[in-house]
Design a protein around this nucleic acid. Structure first.
Lengths: 196, 196
DNA sequence: ACCTGAACACCGTTCAAGT
DNA sequence: ACCTGAACACCGTTCAAGT
């Protein structure tokens, strides 16, 4: 859908307030209220942007899963996928993982978000026993790990991870987190993963 | 300032979009553009709300610090202060710790935020060696811990910490986090702290 | 110093009407 | 089925004018 593509570009360029129906419509060359024939309202267009990105992230995790390798290394790579997405597209990250209106819409996006979480939980499960503590339920551990990474990305995306001496990049934070949670992985190589 | 109080109430009741200059002005009984005589723009009013809350959180941490007790217990209590604030006033939490425009304004709020982080870092420092790993710089560890807690609070405040089996409340997440980072604290009592 | 009223350029959304 | 133009009730912000 060209409308979704246009909304995504506007979001990247100017943040949520730049995604007006008028601007989206103008970008694809239709009248300012033509989008209402394809979407219920402004939020539905943004939800479509979020759903598309969510599916892409899921595909990225699948790729990492298929590539194989040490579990803890795969986890580190998976978390860096989120970090790269948040660094390259801060506004889209905050739409997908932080917008309250979009989250409570249910529908397609909720299904896509659940699928994404499931992939991450699978990777976490693989790590339990080979680095991560095994005496804890996988969903709990997966939620905690993702929350930590989300916190890092969100604080940076909102401009709160600057000088406050200490961690400056999300990647440093992820490496530190994995090191602290899995003491056996103290010499894990630092992975860089391209954006999805 | 009555304008700040009114803006805070409107934010709690209806989220950021409910904080219009017209509604704020009407709540204190002045014309819709009278606030411009006291604040540069709409963002300045919101920044004042955030600064006020930030100072209150700092006072809460000071109180915990003065009360004394086991370092790890103080840390747990301090983190629960953030959780309680986020649970009781989700919109204000997201304004203070998540709004990009407010964060980049600098000024008073930046000073207040720095002071708040400093208190938390002090408590973390006390824990290093008596539970938390000592072989790591305090600011790094403090940022990571706070990021994790922020991630939990933010995911809940935006409606993303629901059924996804596993952690449902932020408090559970904090207990789990402290337990994982400080293995010696496996039997730490669960603290409940009232909102600031 | 502080406030008011009118006005400006924007919004999202609705609706009657066109092809 | 899809689009248009006009209109509605909102915004934040500005400005001349009042006390």
């Amino acid at each position: 859908m060209r409308l979704v593509e246009a909304a995504s570009s506007l979001l990247d360029a100017g943040g949520p307030s730049a995604v007006t129906l008028r601007a989206v419509a103008q970008a694809v060359g239709v009248s300012h209220n033509a989008p209402y024939k394809h979407f219920d309202d402004r939020g539905a267009i943004l939800a479509a942007v979020a759903t598309r990105d969510c599916d892409r992230l899921t595909a990225s995790l699948d790729k990492i899963q298929r590539a194989g390798g040490a579990p803890l290394r795969k986890l580190n790579q998976a978390l860096k996928v989120f970090a790269a997405y948040g660094a390259q597209f801060p506004a889209r990250y905050r739409l997908l993982f932080g917008d309250p209106d979009i989250a409570t819409r249910g529908g397609e996006l909720e299904v896509a978000a659940m699928a994404l979480f499931k992939r991450l939980a699978l990777i976490v499960e693989e790590c339990q026993g080979t680095g991560l503590p095994a005496g804890i339920a996988t969903p709990e551990l997966a939620v905690l790990i993702y929350s930590s990474v989300h916190g890092l990305i969100d604080l940076r995306a909102s401009g709160r991870l600057r000088k406050e001496k200490g961690i400056v990049t999300v990647e440093e934070g992820i490496d530190l987190l994995v090191r602290l949670l899995a003491p056996s992985a103290r010499s894990l190589p630092h992975d860089r993963v391209p954006a999805s």
